[in-house]
Design a protein around this nucleic acid. Structure first.
Lengths: 225, 225
DNA sequence: GCAAAAGTGTTTGGGATACACCCATGC
DNA sequence: GCATGGGTGTATCCCAAACACTTTTGC
């Protein structure tokens, strides 16, 4: 394909913000950059998106290649987040980044080195590009969705305890919730059901295991009259 | 700037969904295409975005040039909507469209011909590209924001009646609301105040005029415990 | 006085909030 | 028996929902 002569497009890149819970902490996947710019700094996995492929297709390729994570099979949820386009964000030239936020469980970056990690979002080091802002925005998006969707399914294993569920909410939202009210409210939403199984661990009462009724996004109605 | 050889980026385009109320109806700005592809069909205003400018800057230029609307001064609100990127959406080649949704009042496309119009969103003709879907998505976004922000300010004149406000909600959301409940709820939110003035028109009781306290976006808290 | 839109109140039910103790288990 | 996390109930308050008539004006 040819461009009409005076038109020079910006580079199109894609970036993935992949969240996962580890030890009741929200973590995000970052890779240490091996090349300039920002060599040696942590950055979100991503790369160029070429003509003829959707940005999601490009993302799947890049994340597989750079972080060894297969977005098609290893995550439970993904959505487009935002397109970041400030002119100075990439020192090599103007690059527009179409970012996606994803959530999963038990994701293991398959890489020999220690340069690809899930790091806690609340104590990230300085990141390359504008990736710190992008992650903050992604977290906000997910925190919001917790309030009116069943998106928590994407951060939890198939079967989970109510304490785990609450810990997930607290980790993403960044604040504590009341145990009794949380359980009462959540159970009334009819998004989950008891499995009948229990989880025993340590010297205390075992916990009932629950599962989501639906592993696709469901929305809870909001009201205005 | 040079691309490393094998990389051919998609075209980057921008599109504007500009909403305005006309006769208590939600309308959107469309322009009749003068060139192929889709010559003669209605389409959203927009165009190419070049390297070295933000997509918003590109959008302002294109919308000014193609529709005679100055986004910097003639609208009350604008936000990035979504990036549409399916490979087949532009028959000339792969074009990624970064779309923005905007709201305003008394916007007048300055064009001699009749080829640029605000058309009611509920009875749009067939549109070029995937623009029908984009508009539906934009409307959903605004309808959602009406529920938990003061974004209605952007669709109403400085001073307005409660009936006008309710009509705006109804037009965007596509359903009727109860007058008493709407007023009670809205007044309790402390987003607007009476101006003391009234609006008289026709053979009936004059209406009190209100104004928003704030003409920037304010968010109403949502709860989960 | 009548047509047309503005404006107004009450009841009911359900959900939000706040708050503290007993239960089951392993050691 | 004690330490640890799992699990539960009630009272209050406010908001959502449903619903119909009076007021002010122009003609």
């Amino acid at each position: 394909m040819q461009y009409s002569s005076p038109y020079q497009p910006p580079i199109v890149t894609v970036d993935a913000i992949i969240f996962q819970m580890l030890n009741d902490t929200l973590t995000v996947l970052v890779a240490k950059r091996t090349d300039e710019p920002f060599k040696g700094q942590w950055a979100l996995p991503g790369g160029y998106s070429a003509a003829g492929q959707t940005t999601m297709e490009a993302l799947v390729q890049k994340v597989k290649a750079k972080a060894g994570v297969d977005l098609d099979n290893e995550i439970n949820y993904i959505e487009q987040l935002y397109t970041f386009d400030t002119v100075g964000r990439d020192p090599r030239g103007h690059a527009v980044s179409i970012s996606y936020v994803a959530c999963g469980v038990d994701i293991e970056p398959t890489d020999g080195s220690h340069e690809i990690k899930f790091l806690p979002v609340d104590s990230l080091p300085h990141l390359a590009y504008d990736h710190s802002e992008i992650i903050a925005y992604a977290r906000e998006r997910i925190a919001n969705k917790l309030l009116f969707t069943n998106i928590a399914f994407s951060l939890l294993p198939e079967k989970f305890t109510l304490t785990q569920l609450q810990a997930t909410y607290e980790a993403v939202m960044g604040r504590d919730l009341d145990k009794r009210n949380f359980r009462k409210k959540f159970l009334s939403l009819n998004l989950i059901h008891e499995t009948g199984e229990t989880w025993r661990e340590g010297a205390h009462r075992p916990a009932a295991l629950y599962a989501f009724n639906n592993k696709g996004i469901e929305t809870i109605a909001r009201n205005f009259d």
